[in-house]
Design a binder for these strands. Sequence first.
DNA 1: ACCTGAACACCGTTCAAGT
DNA 2: ACCTGAACACCGTTCAAGT
Lengths: 210, 210
Amino acid sequence: MQKPFEEARPKPYHHGDLRNALIEAGIELLAEGGAAALDLRKVARRAGVSHAAPYRHFADKQALVAAIDERGFGLLAERIRLGLEAAPSDTAARLTAIARAYVGFAHDRPWLMREMFSGLTVERETLPDLMAASKDVYYQYAEVIRAGQGRGEIIDGEPAALASVLWSLLHGVAMLTIEGQMSPYVATPEALDRAIEYSIDLLIHGLGRR
Amino acid sequence: MQKPFEEARPKPYHHGDLRNALIEAGIELLAEGGAAALDLRKVARRAGVSHAAPYRHFADKQALVAAIDERGFGLLAERIRLGLEAAPSDTAARLTAIARAYVGFAHDRPWLMREMFSGLTVERETLPDLMAASKDVYYQYAEVIRAGQGRGEIIDGEPAALASVLWSLLHGVAMLTIEGQMSPYVATPEALDRAIEYSIDLLIHGLGRR
DNA sequence: ACCTGAACACCGTTCAAGT
DNA sequence: ACCTGAACACCGTTCAAGT
């Protein structure tokens, strides 16, 4: 008992990046069982440490959740970026690409999406990293709007204001469809995609008869 | 100790409508402290019963939450109904009235709003009352769209599909503004109201230049 | 029929102690 | 510096028992 056998690499308490491992375990648990399954003791167990270890890296559960949300915004921004890279340069196509990326992300990771937009209001000001991650998403809409104005395809107006309305529509489509509030328009992936295209088309051309 | 004093009206275990009292207590706790404060034992305490009493009226916490959500949809539908009653008959004004009611409700009761749209997906099919309450809200949009088509103010198309897009926009504006994701457009009530009008105007006339 | 009190399992958090 | 194990307060749920 004096010395452990050499074969069982004593591993220095952990693989060196427990913080990251905890975030990933949290995202997994969220995906598997929803917000109720995101408990700190289970996260720790999955990361292979004791239930008290996370407190070395996060002040409390809320801080871990904020880090998970930040990761989520990063993944979302990346997905939108990839979608835009593959899209043609006309504004309608670019807006549709953003919409597909946004709504697709919500459908792939509904619990993460809910968590990202759910009740961090109060603390948000005190979480600069989280704010920055969410702004990165927003800037991409604004940039497409600005470019569209440059091409004469989008009406005049402050790009940031127009982008906010776009974001609102995307967000509404994403959340209402994952909550099942918009059936039967989203019964299949094809129907969902048609609903996305329809929404963007309507946003561009307007509900009003002219 | 044999007999309690007569003065402390023994009250028949409860005022006869514990179910309702629990729902109201839950809504209060939600408003005061968010989802984390909505705990069953506190709800029971506030309603003046033991922590086990709620189980006479609700199978579990989830069932109480569903009842709270249902009440929420009822309040929202009522607010929209009142808004529409007071609005003039042109479609733009009616859509704006709906938007003010919807977003105003979210700002008055942000935690209730979050709860209403958050993760009941799985069980939703098994909660017919909740489904019905949410449909009542939706029907009001569809009806305004239908009437607008009758007046020649709204483009052709399935009213239900058009209403879904309207709902998405409203929902996005409501949720993103209560999460503080759309500052500085919502720093004051006046700014919020301008943002609501702007959004509806954009939905009617479209982002596209013509 | 409706409610209470004790009991159980489980979670967030803390802290003294280990390496 | 980083992690463990015991401990505490608190919550959801159950159940035998009371009226």
